[in-house]
Amino acid sequence: MFFWEPEVNTLLTQSINLFATGLLVLAFAMIAQRRILTLIHLFTLQGASLVAATLVVAYLTDQHHLYYSAAITFVLKVVLIPILLHRLIDRLNVRWDVETLFNIPTTMLIGIVLVIFAFNLATPIAGLSASIARGTLGIALASVLLSFLMMIVRAKAVPQVIGFLSMENGLFFAATAATSGMPMLVELGIAFDVLVGILILGVFMFQIREQFDSLDIRHLEKLKEE
């Protein structure tokens, strides 16, 4: 034991809040981002801040299974899925695509309302939890809602998939913040679900483009040929 340990622990607890805030800000940045390539970079960063937050929680609460889940998150969300996404946009030939989003400020204002809603909702729940990161439950909830919003407002398939993945980031963080992590089996199951999900969605995107010559999912709303 070192004499400066209490101070370091306080700083580490505060750094969880910092990483959580980073997660939230990155979710906002994704909503406002037009370029698909930057979107993938932002998603990678979000995964990295998630890994960092999980590591700090693992160290502070001395729970070894959180180290494993941080490792899985790193391999999956910082390395594997971004590589898959890069290959996907290369093969779909949409690497430099810029999506035309209408009215980003309005979307972001809706996002702020969602954040206030999530914070209000989470405050009483956080009071029931004994986890050291319970204050960040509201942030996790807000990230999930913001990713929802992103999936709603985006018209193209790739950003929607990234919104889906970012929602999973938020959920994972909520689990870490409120309950110090899910059981290992559940985490492994979710990790493989996400991985398989992105592979299937990738195949799906090729099919969409084959059918409609575009990745705009509005084409899917028509059920009949004219």
Partner: peptide, 24 residues
């Protein structure tokens, strides 16, 4: 530019909200 500055404004609002939530 309005978009750029709206982002700045919203970031600042998030800062306020985060302070209210986390107390830090």
């Amino acid at each position: 530019v309005p978009e750029f500055l709206a982002t700045a404004f919203l970031l600042a609002v998030i800062a306020l909200l985060v302070h209210v939530l986390l107390g830090a």
